[in-house]
Amino acid sequence: MERERAGRREWRSAGLSWAGGVPGLRWEAEAGGGSAGGRGPVSPLSYGAGAGGTVSYGREIGFRVVGERRCVGVRGNPCPLRAVVAGRATQAQCGECARLDRSRSVAADTMADDPRPYAVYLAWFGPGMVKVGITREDRGSARLLEQGAVAFSLLGRGPLMAARRCEELLRAGLGVPDRISYAKKRAVRAALPGAAERAAEVRELHARAVELAGWPEALAVVGCEVVDHAGVFGLDGLAGAVGVVRELVSGGCVAGRVVAVAGPDVHVEVPGAGAGVVVVDSRLVAGWVLEKGDAGGGVTVPVKAVEGEAGVQEGLF
């Protein structure tokens, strides 16, 4: 997590990646004058996958925020304006790049002609917190890892528009949303029921889903096979968070030991008396230049309370 020195290009954060089923921070090199410098390395946030599909955590991290947050561009193409982006924005794009991004987006229904097969899924985040969604079949479970789904099962496979119709059918028929906020996901993450209870809720909804009238003929039903990500995310024994980073600011620091990563959320155990686990939403990190910092330096950026808890802190320690 180092910025190259004067006269050399900088490495700017491009957010979190779940490539290969393990989390890491992606970097993009920025050449002088705003031209693209190319993709950089990935800084691992774990020690990699272990036995039984678990991921080993415990890495020490430490970085200091430098300069201004800049737009990350569109699909690997740099922002021509190198526009400044607000620190609290979870999308590290300027308005124009965001519009271009959505012009070819499944989520925005602007890719109806995509010929690739899609999968419909049920994703579980906590008791009573289940959503339905679609993902490109060749992405496997990547979309579910990115969303922080603790457990999930596929429901069907087929053409995009059939998958979209099925998604709408399930939302109405099961009474489940297509979106759950990260604030709600964080609030329950450290107090989840066991794997058997998680799987039972997914199986029950799957059984109800495949019996609904109006299932699109072009969509093949997929039998229930629950995949659990608690071991991948490091949720077993996870301590509740004392706060969530609200935004990064120039000169601010984030440092500690990574104890879990779920979706874009990096759970960092901060050292020092009275400290605890602070959640860093990696979407807020994208677009910043970061310098290497002391792993024992704590957190000096604005922090807010976890949803449902009183109080707001402007910084720790």
Rank of each mutant, 00 (worst) to 15 (best):
V301Q: 03
S282F: 00
W288Y: 06
G272C: 07
A273R: 11
V299D: 03
A255G: 10
G293E: 12
K304A: 15
G252W: 02
D265A: 08
L290S: 05
P264T: 10
V312R: 13
G308L: 11
G315E: 15
K292I: 01
D294L: 06
D294M: 00
G251S: 05
V285G: 01
G274V: 05
G311Q: 14
A286N: 05
D294F: 00
K292H: 01
H267M: 09
P302W: 13
A295L: 01
Q313S: 07
V261H: 02
R283A: 04
S282Q: 05
H267W: 13
V254K: 08
A273Q: 11
K304V: 15
G315Q: 15
V277F: 07
T300V: 07
V259W: 03
V258Q: 05
L290C: 04
G272S: 04
G274N: 03
G272N: 02
G252Q: 01
G298E: 10
G311P: 14
G308Y: 11
P264A: 12
G276R: 11
G252K: 02
D265K: 04
E314Y: 08
D265W: 02
E307Q: 15
G272V: 05
V312M: 09
A262N: 10
G256W: 06
G315T: 14
G274D: 05
P264W: 05
V285E: 03
A255R: 03
T300F: 11
G263Q: 07
G274P: 03
V279G: 11
E309N: 09
A295S: 14
V259N: 05
V266K: 02
V303M: 11
G287A: 12
C253Q: 11
G296E: 13
S282M: 11
G297R: 08
G293K: 00
G263I: 06
V268D: 12
V278L: 12
A262H: 10
G308C: 13
V268R: 13
G263N: 03
A295T: 14
K304C: 15
A260S: 13
V278M: 09
R283N: 10
E307C: 10
E291M: 01
H267Q: 11
L290V: 06
G287Q: 09
G311M: 11
V306E: 15
V278Q: 11
K292Q: 08
K304W: 13
V268S: 12
V279L: 12
D281S: 01
V301R: 04
A295I: 11
G276Y: 10
A305F: 13
G252R: 00
R283D: 07
E291P: 00
P264L: 06
K304P: 12
V301A: 05
V270Y: 01
K292T: 06
G256F: 07
V280T: 03
G256Y: 04
G308T: 15
A255T: 04
G296L: 10
G287L: 07
V261E: 02
D265R: 05
R257V: 14
A273P: 09
R283I: 00
V277L: 09
G298Y: 06
V299P: 08
G287D: 07
V312H: 12
V312Y: 13
V289A: 02
V312G: 12
G276P: 09
